[in-house]
């Protein structure tokens, strides 16, 4: 078990976005978090990360994990596009949760940075400026940064947004590698449900509450039923 939530209610200040969230995420899972715009995917992710406080309910992590040691790839942010920073600097900033109160990095963090650059095959970009990279390369750099922060859990918020088909495919391969070879639990928020279902082993569908939580096969069945039901209802109401 990595994290469990019980009757979790989340939202901003007085506005409830999601309630009755009951989910369990286990070690090595590849979770797809799915839902319409405004369904509360990002809010749930931010609550798990501790960026916003939960409103009610419980959320518990396994003993060797804290909110700080979760890797995070935020939604695309325009601010980053022209930022003067080298790839190395960006990736290294993922190690900040390891340096505690020290002002500077030690050899250990520098080594980890190099290691992550290698795993994501972007060593040759190390000294390039972040602003000059393509969308796919930028995403890899941010992924390397997120990996620097964690050994266990990685949360990705819309990682495929703005990537073309071929680049997205490469990113899937990279993510598979991270999940299978490094054993990192992945929680991915995405709209591209079709592609993701082929890789994920758990689907969570959000809309006001947790509509569905299960494996991809069950989810396809669930979708079929929903679809047939809605067809049936249209036929009846139509007459």
């Amino acid at each position: 078990m990595i994290l469990v939530s019980k009757n979790l209610v989340i939202g901003y200040e007085n506005r409830v976005v999601l309630k009755d969230v009951n989910l369990e995420i286990n070690e090595g899972d590849y979770v797809c978090l799915f839902g319409n715009n405004g369904a509360g995917k990002s809010t749930l992710v931010k609550t798990i990360l501790g960026l916003i406080p939960k409103l009610k309910g419980e959320i518990t992590f396994s003993k060797d994990i804290s909110q700080r040691s979760i890797g995070y790839l935020p939604q695309h942010n325009d601010n980053l596009d022209n930022f003067p920073a080298s790839v190395y600097e960006v990736v290294r900033s993922g190690c900040l949760n390891r340096i505690k109160n020290r002002p500077f990095y030690t050899k250990k963090e520098i080594q980890r940075t190099k290691e992550m650059l290698k795993i994501l095959e972007i060593e040759d970009l190390e000294n390039r400026s972040f602003s000059e990279l393509s969308g796919g390369q930028k995403q890899k750099v941010l992924l390397a940064r997120a990996l620097c922060a964690t050994d266990k859990v990685l949360i990705l918020d819309e990682p495929f947004a703005g990537l073309d088909g071929a680049t997205a495919k490469k990113l899937y391969t990279t993510l598979d590698k991270i999940n299978k070879e490094l054993g990192v639990t992945l929680i991915i928020v995405s709209h591209f449900i079709e592609d993701l279902l082929r890789h994920a082993n758990k689907v969570i569908h959000l809309s006001q509450s947790c509509l569905f939580c299960g494996n991809p096969e069950e989810y396809k069945e669930h979708l079929k039923k929903e679809y047939l039901l809605s067809r049936y209802q249209t036929v009846i109401e139509g007459d």
Binding site: K46, L49, G50, L51, Q67, R68, I70, Y72, P74, N77, N79, L80, F83, A85, E89, V90, S93, G94, L96, N97, R145, A146, A149
Partner: peptide
């Protein structure tokens, strides 16, 4: 650097 570059990531790492 981290806070300037990406505030939400920085916050997630505990800054």
């Amino acid at each position: 650097f981290s806070v300037t570059f990406d505030e939400s990531f920085a916050k997630a790492t505990g800054i």
